[in-house]
Amino acid sequence: MGFELFFTGTGLVVKGVLLLLILFSVVSWGIIMFKMYQIHKAFSDSGRFMDFFWKTKRFDSIAAQTERFASSPLVALFNEGYSELKQLMETGESKQEQGGALSTDLGGIANVSRALRRATNLEVTRLEKYTTFLATTGSTSPFIGLFGTVWGIMVAFIGIGKTGSASLAVVAPGIAEALIATAIGLVAAIPAVMAYNHFQHKIRVLVKEMDSFSTEFLNIVQRNIAGK
């Protein structure tokens, strides 16, 4: 039996199942490649950004260079925190001019903290985007393939019943055509599950890095600005 007969020799339902599984496989591999690039870039840009952050003393200098580390989620956090801080400073200065109190007090720090938390959530959402499809592919593809196999074997046995012959030559091709659905289901599911677990681990590490950066950023803000 030729390779092409595995597809052309099957019934309509099995054909549909095979097409669905191939679609799942194509999309999940697309997501795998996309996420691999995205997470790899996020890690490398984060490392470079942290070096730059600790070497540079001024926030405005850092803010001017953030485009160089665009893929890092820490840059998004810094931008959020810095813009919030800038707003607080502007508001504080205007109030000081009017004879009011400095606004960068503990209430202002809480604002920055909330902005950082919001940015963290947005970055986690961005990093986890599409990974749910990998989880869905990993958990449902074997069952879809199994459904195709069960259907194919059922049709094959109906054909055998009509033929009246139960020789191996009659039984084997139908079952082989049916089993290809399970095989493709597993081919689609195994890389998806492996990639999903890998990406989840990497995203957890990035989340820890973001938490650490938020704490460091708040500390710096509180030490250097609120303490004035």
């Binding site: 194509v26 999309v27 591999w29 697309g30 997501i31 795998i32 490649m33 996309f34 690039y37 995205q38 870039k41 953030t66 485009e67 665009a70 893929s71 998004a76 931008n79 959020e80 813009s83 919030e84 902005a115 940015a119 947005l122 961005r126 599409y130």
Partner: peptide, 20 residues
């Protein structure tokens, strides 16, 4: 507040094409 992030990501359609 406006965030300056989206343009930095690789295009998802490119990955799907590569997968195809």
């Amino acid at each position: 507040m406006q965030r300056a992030t989206p343009s930095r990501e690789p295009r998802f359609a490119v990955s799907i094409t590569l997968s195809l």
